[in-house]
Design a binder for these strands. Sequence first.
DNA 1: CAGTGAGCGAGCTTCCGCTTGACTT
Length: 681
Amino acid sequence: MDIIIVESPTKAKTLSRFLGGAYQIEASFGHIRDLPASKLGIDVERNFTPDYIIPKDKKEKVEQLRREAGKAQSVILATDPDREGEAIAYHLREVISGKAKFQRITFHEITEPAIKEALKNPGEINMQLVDAQQARRILDRLVGYKLSPLLWRKIRRGLSAGRVQSVAVRLIVEREREILAFKPEEYWEIVTKLKVQSLKLQEDGGEFEAKLTKIDGKSAEIRNKGEADVITAELEKAEFKVSDVQKKEVKRSPYPPFTTSTMQQSASNLFGWSAKRTMQVAQNLYEEGLITYHRTDSTNLNMEAVNNARNFIRERFGNNYAPEEPRFYKTKSKVAQEAHEAIRPTRIGELEQVKQQITGRDEERLYELIWKRFLACQMSETVFEQTGADINVVNHEQNIGNPDLVEANSQRREYLLRANGSKRLFDGWTKLFGSANNNNDDSNGSDKELPELTAGDLLQLLGILPSQHFTEPPPRYTEASLIKALEEYGIGRPSTYAPIISTILERFYVERLEKKLHPTALGIAVNDFLIANFPEILNYQFTAGMEESLDDIANGKKQWVGVIRDFYDPFAEQLGKVGDTAERVKVETETTDEVCPLDGSPLIIRIGKFGRFLACSKFPECKFTKTFAKKIDVKCPKCGGDIIIKRTRSKKTFYGCSNYPQCDFASWTKPKAVNVVEPAS
DNA sequence: CAGTGAGCGAGCTTCCGCTTGACTT
């Protein structure tokens, strides 16, 4: 029997469902060969020859594949149709070898017709694509395993640098500096509450708000309370008249179906989930056969799934909720490999019914999000009627026509107000998301409806609301916005977005406070050192340049060795220079109010391999250290010191005494407060 | 249940991208 090898056991299961017992189907579980972790593994002197090994945890799998392939006539390599997939196929062939015949097939969606078609047209491994992957792998290894040891020498042991992680840290550091340098500027907004005069006698309704937008034809800039007060006083005595009303129909299209990065962003924004948690939940849904593959950069959709969705929409909501033609979404990213479809439910049915077979609350929530996002992407646009009204401010004095006021009036400023409103004419795809913003990504569309206004209408002033504001600095990155930024630069891949964040957190280059990413002193020191000495690699465009060269290799325009040499020769020279001349970098420390019990010097905060700790500022003369952690409001039953929350190496939390190692109190559970006298209240 | 920095110089740290369990609670 012929054997088919794919990467993922779930993909293997799906294939065997389509192909019945005609083939034996096995999974490689990703790459089965790699450079050794313990050394560079590249012979730089001999054309960068890589030294591939089979990692320990893959040995058994490879042995099994060898055995199975030995019994087969032909081995069909059906790994993903992209750079990494081609390389996996190549390494499988190299490792298995034997007397079997090897064939390579590719397909972009895991459907029965696509797979059967692929099996009819087997091809060869594309060695140019393999070379492109090899160049990518070797370049990343050279950058990572040459820069990291330099950091060990120049800053601190155990640090790391890489094409992706170092740029991620750079984004966060630079954003922090923008925030630090930002000077908030005061400005004021003046909003009036108005009502159509002819509706004066009506009890209710007809009220709306209009904002002062222009002064003397220029956009209104009100810098302080004084200016705002002057304008408010003038407006209080003025009359208001509608000068122009514009109405237009605005359509809003649904969002494209999920890719890995947009799914991570939505789950973060709506549920507050980390990228890691989202991927774990998606993995469960994928293994249950409920969604398509969750690591993808493509918004392509299988045609049959689209048609099923369209039928479902028509039956469930009515014909006008499905547009005449199916919607196609073009993948935005230029570096997308498009080996998979977008993330979507594998079958479309009533949400509540599918949810009944899902175990886990998180899985239900993520599934619902994916279900709605996919269905919405094949639904009709939402239609709004947007109304804009220009409102002129007419001064009493001018109307009186008193000639004595002519001069005063000539200095009087001209004010223009603007009222905006919108009315939903057809809900379209937003029907899925309901009026409550439960599960709705979409915070616009909160415009209120305006009353019917006509040019010439006189308006009654109900009130003036001046408000003080300050310009705000750009926001710190969250996991979601960092992933978005990285994807826009083409840095990182769907399978690595979550691990990138884990890495820079583990190294203590950044920390997460209330879901925002802040750089640490260590992150800033490492970043500044790298930018000063290796600006090309830290450049946001470095990966884009690399991708271009990899495309040239894949297209046969360039040889991989030449591409690596062109990069490595100047890099090696710079490495030598920096290694010889750069000063050792001191990481900024922060002084605390606490005092060293041994010599009375202030304690400072340092960042070690387990994160922050307190140390005597007289180091190395005084070696006192103490744990830095958040206190809880409980004292140590042994010594009366502060109890702090800590983690073991395996990340399990426990409660310990801050006087460790002098005091060895520790407990898995929160110690009860002892000898605490409650103040009388 | 649990260390950290410097330098001494044993042996070790480190990359990105492809995939899931094997661990522990």
